[in-house]
């Protein structure tokens, strides 16, 4: 990755943990090596995981080869929820500490998270048609995931809806925090209601209910998509900071010209 322009990197500042990471210059120095690292890990893990999942993992005894959609669908579902959780954390940082990097992060996480949610819904639909005989059912898991997609769209629209960006950040932060109620509903929907969607095969507390020969490529794909998500958000956030610096420089230049005139 090429060197950043000097104006993009401000000198390191002292301060508490939160404020240390509120410094965009510090983030840019971190992102300079973190973004390509995450990108390369993602590329390698995705190539390995997808080849493993498509050609070397066994077919399911009931679902046949259709189970291979899982290597995309499950990581996308987890990242969709994780992305929205990150939005809610950014919302808290915005409302409580007025964290400037959290504002920009919320703007950049939204579209990536919405894409993950859309892919989860699309691949779920493509998995559901041959297995359930329907592209869509108004099942609790599917419906709560669709609600998450609309929450993402609302967040993306709201954060860009005001002339004063600060108002947009605050409004979107409130939506992100309020919308996070949907996350436990998504997670526990398969336990709380009688759904067509199967229960979770992987839980934090219990042993996985799937064979290791399927779990291993799924974990590799999970690492690949997660690092890819991180790399994309990091690259978009870097671009957003640089664009913001360029806007500041332009404004200063115009002000100086007007003063001179």
């Amino acid at each position: 990755m090429s060197a950043l322009p000097q104006s993009a990197v401000s000198p390191p500042q002292r301060g508490g943990l939160l404020h240390r990471f509120a410094n965009p210059g510090r983030f840019l120095r971190l992102a300079r090596w973190l973004t390509p690292l995450l990108g390369w890990i993602s590329a390698v893990a995705l190539v390995a995981g997808i080849i493993w999942g498509l050609f070397f993992s066994p077919a399911d005894w009931q679902q046949g080869d259709t189970v291979r959609i899982m290597y995309i669908h499950v990581p996308m579902a987890i990242l969709a929820s994780a992305g929205y959780f990150a939005l809610a954390i950014c919302g808290v940082l915005t409302l409580v500490w007025k964290h400037p990097l959290a504002d920009l992060a919320a703007v950049e996480i939204g579209p990536v998270g919405a894409t993950a949610t859309a892919l989860c819904l699309a691949t779920g639909s493509l998995w559901g048609k041959p297995m359930w005989g329907a592209w869509w059912v108004w099942d609790a898991r599917l419906t709560s995931m669709l609600v998450l997609f609309f929450l993402y769209l609302g967040h993306i629209a709201l954060i860009r809806a005001f002339d004063d960006p600060q108002r947009g950040y605050r409004a979107a932060a409130i939506l992100a925090i309020a919308g996070s109620v949907d996350l436990p509903i998504i997670k526990f929907s398969v336990n709380w209601w009688n759904t067509l969607h199967q229960p979770d095969s992987i839980t934090l507390t219990g042993a996985p209910t799937m064979s290791m020969s399927m779990l291993a490529p799924l974990m590799v794909c999970m690492i690949g998509f997660s690092c890819g998500f991180g790399a994309l958000v990091s690259a978009r956030l870097t671009a957003a900071i640089l664009e913001s610096r360029a806007r500041q420089m332009m404004t200063r230049r115009i002000a100086e010209r007007e003063e001179a005139a």
């Binding site: 995309i72 669908h73 990536v112 691949t123 493509l126």
Partner: peptide
């Protein structure tokens, strides 16, 4: 592979979305 069009469509749509974002 059984249900190949569904599997191919899943991987295809994901590849396109990831490529566009990247």
């Amino acid at each position: 592979m059984t249900h190949l069009p569904f599997i191919a469509a899943s991987y295809g749509v994901t590849a396109v979305a990831v490529l566009v974002l990247t």
